[in-house]
Simulated scan of single mutants.
Amino acid sequence: MAPAAAPLPVVISTQAEAAALPAHLAPLADRARDYVEAASSANTRRAYASDWKHFSAWCRRQNLEPLHVDPQLVGLYITACASGAATPDRVPSSVGTIERRLSALSWNFAQRGQPLDRKDRHIATVLAGIRNTHGRPPLQKEAVLPEDLIAMLETLDRGTLRGLRDRAMLLLGFAGGLRRSEIVALDAGRDQTEDGRGWVEILDKGMLVTLRGKNGWREVEIGRGSSDSTCPVVALQTWLKLAKIGHGPLFRRVTGQGKEVGPDRLTDQQVARLVKRAALAAGVRADLTEGEREMKFAGHSLRAGLASSAEVDERYVQKQLGHASAEMTRRYQRRRDRFRVNLTKAAGL
Rank of each mutant, 00 (worst) to 15 (best):
K276S: 15
K276N: 15
K276M: 15
R277M: 01
R277Y: 10
R277E: 15
A278V: 07
A278L: 06
A279Q: 14
A279L: 12
A279I: 10
L280T: 08
L280M: 14
L280R: 14
A281V: 05
A281D: 11
A281K: 15
A281F: 02
A282C: 09
G283C: 13
V284N: 01
V284A: 01
R285L: 14
R285H: 12
R285V: 11
A286T: 08
A286C: 06
D287F: 00
D287S: 09
L288S: 12
L288N: 09
L288Y: 11
L288V: 12
T289F: 09
T289E: 15
T289G: 15
T289K: 04
E290V: 14
E290A: 15
G291H: 05
G291K: 05
G291N: 08
E292R: 09
E292L: 08
E292Y: 04
R293P: 13
R293E: 14
R293V: 13
R293K: 14
E294D: 13
E294R: 14
M295S: 11
M295V: 09
M295W: 03
F297T: 04
F297G: 06
A298T: 07
A298E: 06
A298S: 15
G299A: 11
H300P: 14
H300N: 14
H300D: 13
S301M: 07
S301C: 06
S301Y: 08
S301N: 07
L302G: 01
R303L: 02
R303A: 02
A304D: 02
A304M: 12
A304V: 00
G305E: 01
G305L: 01
G305Y: 01
G305F: 03
L306R: 04
A307G: 01
A307S: 02
S308R: 01
S309Q: 01
S309E: 04
A310Y: 02
A310R: 03
A310P: 00
E311V: 06
V312Q: 06
V312L: 12
D313E: 09
D313C: 02
D313K: 07
D313M: 00
D313Y: 00
D313F: 00
E314T: 11
E314N: 07
R315S: 10
V317M: 13
K319W: 10
K319H: 10
K319N: 03
K319R: 13
Q320S: 07
Q320L: 12
L321Q: 00
L321F: 02
G322R: 03
G322A: 12
H323S: 06
H323I: 04
H323Q: 06
H323L: 09
H323C: 07
A324C: 05
A324T: 09
S325C: 08
S325E: 07
